[in-house]
Amino acid sequence: MTYWLLKFVFLGPLLKLVFRPWVSGAEKVPLEGPVILASNHLSYADWLFMPLVVPRRVTFVAKAEYFHTPGIKGRFQKTFFSSTGQVPIDRTGGRASEGALRTQLRLLRKGEVCGIYPEGTRSGDGRLYRGRTGVARLALESGVPVIPVAVTNTNVIAPPGKVFGRFARPGVTFGRPLDFSRYDGMADDRYILRAVTDEIMYEIMRLSGQEYVDRYASRSKNVEPTEPGPDVSDLPKAS
């Protein structure tokens, strides 16, 4: 309930009024049933504008620490992240990547829409970086179609390292759903995982018009991935 209040009553109308986001291909997102939205990642603002143009709740996974910080700040943080469609990673297994996969599989089995950033972290220079194979593992384990998504201009609104840059009109483009049922039962094959991931990234590149860089964004910035979309290609099959 708080998600819908924030999206449609408070935050949503304000963002639409101020930034006037445009959208293309929103009709490709099904009105019901599970689906994975795999997006490029230019800015922290991506997870505000992309879900804003989808008529369904889009759920991302986030670090559990955001939901368990004590005190007033912790309560505010938990309320905000919960209200904007984020859920904590299930880390009962100890590993964030395994927990993210398990959490997202559970959501998809409930018929929800899961958002994921295959690059694993924000692009520091506006280029599109190599996708991590967590998105492929999620697609093959769940049997759910993947819709590639391209956001534009969010890095102008909120550049890396800044809360706000300058006003720009953000855009969100949805591509055709990608069906990977031909790889059913092959989720443990790392070559298949890489092929599926590369196909998804190619479609994102085609939609966004970004220059593609065949290396991980985290290595370019010399940091570990911090956003949804971890590389879980080395994990055992989730139950």
Rank of each mutant, 00 (worst) to 15 (best):
V35W: 10
I36Y: 03
I36C: 07
L37E: 02
S39H: 02
S39K: 06
S39W: 05
S39E: 05
N40W: 01
H41Q: 09
L42E: 05
Y44K: 04
A45E: 02
D46W: 03
D46T: 06
D46H: 04
W47H: 01
L48I: 09
L48Y: 13
L52T: 08
V54F: 00
V54T: 11
P55A: 11
R56Q: 14
R57W: 03
V58E: 06
F60R: 03
V61Q: 01
A62P: 06
K63T: 11
A64N: 10
A64Q: 07
A64E: 13
E65H: 00
E65C: 00
Y66I: 13
F67Q: 07
F67W: 11
P70C: 00
K73P: 02
R75Y: 15
F80S: 10
F81Q: 09
S82M: 01
S82T: 12
S82I: 04
S83P: 02
S83F: 01
T84H: 13
T84N: 13
T84G: 06
Q86L: 11
V87M: 10
V87C: 04
P88S: 03
I89T: 14
D90F: 07
R91M: 09
R91L: 03
T92F: 09
T92S: 15
T92A: 12
G93N: 13
R95D: 15
S97V: 12
E98G: 05
L101F: 01
L101P: 07
T103D: 07
R106L: 11
R106A: 15
R106V: 09
R106I: 06
L107V: 06
L107H: 12
L108T: 06
L108I: 09
L108N: 01
G111Y: 11
I116D: 08
E119F: 10
E119I: 11
E119R: 02
G120C: 08
R122G: 10
D125Y: 02
D125G: 00
D125E: 02
D125H: 02
G126R: 04
G126W: 06
L128Y: 03
R132G: 01
T133A: 15
T133I: 09
T133L: 04
G134H: 06
V135C: 06
V135Q: 06
V135F: 01
A139I: 07
E141Y: 07
G143I: 03
G143D: 00
P145C: 05
A150V: 02
V151G: 05
V151D: 03
T152N: 04
T152Q: 04
T154M: 05
N155Q: 12
N155C: 10
V156G: 05
I157N: 01
I157R: 08
I157S: 01
P159N: 11
P160D: 12
P160K: 15
P160L: 13
G161F: 13
G161P: 08
V163F: 15
F164P: 02
F164V: 14
R166F: 09
R166S: 13
F167W: 15
A168F: 03
A168T: 05
G171W: 07
V172Y: 08
V172R: 00
V172P: 00
T173R: 14
F174I: 06
